[in-house]
Design a protein around this nucleic acid. Structure first.
Lengths: 204, 204
DNA sequence: GTCTATATTGTGATAGAC
DNA sequence: GTCTATCACAATATAGAC
């Protein structure tokens, strides 16, 4: 960790709040715990952010932006379809390894209040239509077999995200008998997921 | 709904608690809300179950048993590998459609307290080794290509579970532009998931 | 068994000294 | 800006009448 630069209180608080909220969720976290984590007094939280809800909102917005993959860049580049998949999986899994509790946090909080999504996606924007178009072009070009993009995209996302959401269960039913730790297991998936997809939809 | 038979208070409370806990989680639920849902007084909850935690535990244990797929039955039957996959996906998605919030609930609560798992799996037991052995036999028999079972099994589970965990997001980024409602979308997946797997690992 | 208080602790939030 | 003290209320839990 190289970020020991003296930061201002506001970002210190945000960092502590992020840590606590992401791990325990909104209803599972208390202002006291966040204050302790930040090494300051409870009232200071209210000084910088008016309420628990506002503090949470600040954390959630930034976390959500991180969660939605920057899929546009790589999907419009000139590389082959298989390389696009590999590149995406590699980049996204790397980010998730650095933020293993992010998926569970986002999914749970969105479930708690789905209305946030509409406002969220205005800022962030997952370019669905662009990806669908890209996939359809690959099909008509004869590079991949006819696959329904509206199922393929969730399949891809699920295979990346699921291990992080179900981490304790996976550890119990699989990894323990597989003698690998979690990070090594995810590293393996960087090859396994593209391989799985390759056999599933590639024509040549 | 045909279950209007007069039930005893205890199961009425359990039903109400299940509804509230599964939707809002342990920290997001209050005893008051559960009492309201059951149409009774707050103190009665404490009469039947000593504490919030005990009431939750009763709900969680039964929910967890439902969540862990009865994969042993179908995986040891004499049918072909592809039929096993299709049968499992069909059965499991049907159960999930009746309990759409179950996966998010279980996964979130396990994340909140992973220690429960050890005790849970003693009772329930997901027969990992049996499934792994079965897959390895299919490989050596030349029915499917050599695939790592420790990645294949999570892939299969993830494709079934993910839509339910990420339902609001999927609705926002996919289904709206796809003109299907959620149930119709899941019905489609009963064919799409086996199809995806078939192309991915079947040899013939 | 079921209800109406009531006790007791948690927690978000504010007031006010410095 | 930062702290201590305190308020107001919500939530779990219990006591006791019926």
């Amino acid at each position: 960790m190289m970020d020991n630069e003296p930061k201002n209180r506001e970002s210190m608080i945000l960092e502590a709040a992020r840590k606590v909220f992401i791990r325990k969720g909104y209803t599972g976290s208390t202002m006291q715990e966040i204050a302790d984590e930040a090494g300051i007094n409870k009232s200071l939280l209210h000084y910088y952010f008016r309420s628990k809800e506002r503090l949470f909102e600040a954390v959630f917005v930034s976390a959500f932006k991180q969660f939605v993959p920057m899929i546009g860049q790589i999907m419009t580049s000139g590389i082959s379809f298989f390389d696009k998949i590999t590149g995406f999986v590699d980049t996204y899994l790397d980010m998730l390894l650095k933020n293993p509790y992010l998926p569970g946090f986002i999914l749970h909080e969105i479930n708690r209040n789905p209305d946030w999504l509409i406002r969220m996606f205005k800022d962030v924007g997952f370019q669905t239509q662009m990806i669908v178009t890209m996939i359809e072009k690959e099909i008509s070009d004869g590079n991949i077999r006819p696959v329904n993009p509206y199922h393929f995209i969730p399949n891809l996302l699920s295979m990346c995200l699921f291990p992080f959401i179900s981490r304790p269960i996976l550890k119990e039913i699989l990894i323990d008998s597989y003698t690998k730790d979690f990070e090594a297991y995810i590293e393996e998936r960087k090859k396994e997921i593209p391989e799985f997809i390759k056999h599933s939809i590639m024509i040549k």
